[in-house]
Design a protein around this nucleic acid. Structure first.
Lengths: 193, 193
DNA sequence: CGCCGAGTTGAACTGAATCAAGAAACGTGG
DNA sequence: CCACGTTTCTTGATTCAGTTCAACTCGGCG
């Protein structure tokens, strides 16, 4: 895998970046090939790296009273990092795990900040991603707070129809804030229509 | 109320802005004095204005099956806008209402974007506020999803101890995703310790 | 094969919602 | 400053969606 391919992909998914910016980015990022179940970030680490998923999917999760709670999914074309750690420079409350063989572009915070300062278009991309994330989180609060378990599941399917094929149901359940059993029952009653 | 006073306040609460930036901002914003219960934004409007709360408090809410659901509180030193409308240029799903006599600084999106382009420090302020909002939303999802009604209330009090004195309980209840009755019971059992 | 993690199904339990009725606080005009 | 109506908040009884705990099924893989 070459940097240029991934760069072209980013420019296509988001928006074009200048040549200088890409050149600079190439020298400050690393391409990673990760196996399924690779842990990219562990709880407690200062997770100062952000990842672009060129291929594959990943999740952020944390442990609440020993239970594994999925907080975020990312698929190809998305970025993923421990936002708390990355943006506040504190130990990460999250783990980040790759859910399928993946190709990632990794950049550390220092480079990220330097490039943001130096290249206006890079800065704009960062701002855009953060803004989109904010809007997605806001939507999710509405969903989590006032929808039934069934509505939450159907909503997720609307946005992400094939997620059940790519992610174990237990992760989907905890992401939706319901138990695996409830999700199973919803799916059970759903099929036979 | 003078622009300079509010500007000084913003620079203090967030970070210093250059003279040129402030001059430009002064010419592209309006100071508003709003009564309690003023509606700044209505559902369906293209709400292309963002507000800085110099004094007072406000909330964003929406109607879900006719019920009034508070989605966000802002107090002095915060910004408030219909984020969906402002950042995506779509009709606002939210109302924004002032909850006490307030002094606001209003800026429309066009000016906001122009100043973001022109003044690096202004852009940085915008990025900072969006990032903080993202982190706050992320925290809130964790809270909404896996805490009991009581924990959610206690959590809110930790962050915002005097909110009950400034905001009607019904708004706090819907913000927490619980009913007014449940909140009342929690508070009832709470006091007598 | 037999084990193991992932998913399904069942039964009992529970936190919070809903419905209903009052009490307190608030503000507005007489 | 008090009577009023309105809004906000409290309390009680009942109901329900979803949890918990437990047993069982299925599909892969050493």
């Amino acid at each position: 895998m070459e940097f240029e391919t991934i760069a072209r992909n980013i420019c296509q998914v988001y928006f074009p970046l200048s040549k200088e910016c890409l050149l600079d980015a190439a020298q400050n990022s690393t391409i990673l090939h990760a196996e399924k179940n690779t842990i990219l970030v562990r709880e407690g680490q200062y997770a100062d790296t952000t990842y672009y998923l060129y291929e594959g999917c990943a999740r952020a999760y944390y442990l609440k009273d020993g239970k594994d709670i999925t907080d975020w999914f990312s698929f190809e074309g998305n970025f993923i990092c421990s936002i708390n750690s990355f943006f506040q420079n504190i130990p990460s409350p999250h783990y980040i795990e790759v859910l399928s063989p993946a190709i990632l572009l990794a950049m550390d915070r220092e480079s990220f900040l330097r490039l943001s300062d130096k290249h206006r278009d890079f800065d704009r991309l960062g701002k855009y991603v953060v803004t989109q994330t904010m809007l997605r989180l806001q939507q999710r609060i509405v969903s989590v707070q006032f929808e039934t378990a069934r509505q939450k599941y159907e909503n997720l399917l609307k946005i992400n129809p094939d997620i059940t094929l790519r992610v174990p149901l237990m992760h989907i359940a905890s992401y939706l804030g319901i138990t695996l059993e409830t999700l199973s029952r919803i799916r059970g009653s759903h099929k036979r229509i």
